[in-house]
């Protein structure tokens, strides 16, 4: 990642402050590779982050502008910011599963509704790991965490019949994909598609947390075991097996089919402005 690091990332934040073995870097890197392959420069992109591992570890890594919202609110900040910044700038958000699907879910849905341009990379470590490892909205059934000591028995949002990506699709998102962080090329391709959408894109990417999830769910902090545990439970869409937890690939591709929020606002406002200027000149 050396060349990419020089081009896009801040030296101060390399190496990352993440725990050893953390898979967040794979997801983060995939997005940076996608940005590079699309030919963006660092000042073309404003990088927003949330709270939790995904947000804290990626904040201030981007060489250009960075902002970090309070828990769950970065989508609302991004929507206001979208109106004020030049249309050609892209917003990329790296956020956690608790931030996007829990505390910030209402704001996320409204960002999808409005189709505001933002590429949201939900880096999912399967629960609340930065607070020590409590269950979240994507924690697999049966998994023990500090707050599900008898095993996760609540329904979660990656079950086939109640997939959160379906909710986001119904809410108006124009690009949706799901991956695991070790997906490599397919993950990069999904990030590229997401970035090419002048609208709301979300890539859901599961990554391994060794320190807390690994310890609680698998009973050890063995990095290889944790990586394999996730990898073995992921399969491309259409190739699912019985024990598949994460079906990977593009779930919904309607890129550039709906007006983008800030473009719509700009068009409407200039139309209203013209109308009243015309009336005023009569």
């Amino acid at each position: 990642m050396d060349k990419l690091t020089d081009k896009y990332l801040r030296k101060r934040k390399i190496p990352s402050t993440a725990c050893s073995g953390c898979g967040l870097g794979q997801a983060h890197k995939a997005m940076v590779v996608a940005i590079d392959e699309l030919g963006f420069d660092f000042y073309d992109i404003i990088w927003g982050t949330s709270i939790g591992c995904a947000g804290r570890q990626t904040f201030a890594t981007w060489k250009g502008d960075n902002f970090a919202g309070t828990h769950g609110r970065v989508y609302a900040i991004a929507r206001g910011l979208r109106l004020a910044i030049p249309v050609e700038k892209k917003l990329v958000l790296t956020v956690g599963d608790g931030d996007a699907f829990g505390i910030g879910f209402n704001h996320l849905l409204h960002a999808a509704r409005s189709n505001a341009q933002m590429t949201v990379l939900v880096c999912d470590n399967l629960g609340y790991q930065s607070t020590g490892g409590q269950y979240g909205w994507t924690t697999p059934a049966g998994v023990k965490t500090d707050s599900s000591p008898y095993g996760m028995f609540e329904p979660n949002w990656v079950q086939t019949e109640m997939d959160i990506l379906n909710v986001l699709k119904a809410a108006g998102a124009t690009f949706l994909a799901r991956h695991v962080s070790m997906d490599g090329r397919p993950l990069v391709e999904s990030c590229k598609k997401a970035l090419q959408n002048n609208g709301f894109s979300l890539v859901h990417c599961v990554f391994p947390c060794i320190t807390n999830f690994g310890k609680n769910a698998l009973g050890s902090r063995n990095t290889v075991n944790m990586f394999n545990w996730i990898k073995n439970r992921a399969a491309p869409l259409g190739e699912e097996k019985e024990d598949t937890l994460w079906r990977t690939g593009i779930y919904h591709d309607a890129i550039n089919t709906r007006p983008e929020f800030s473009q719509l606002m700009r068009d409407k406002v200039s139309e209203i402005q013209r109308r009243y200027q015309d009336e005023g000149s009569h």
Partner: peptide, 8 residues
Amino acid sequence: HLAIGASL
């Protein structure tokens, strides 16, 4: 937050 975003 929207107002903050616009101000930012």
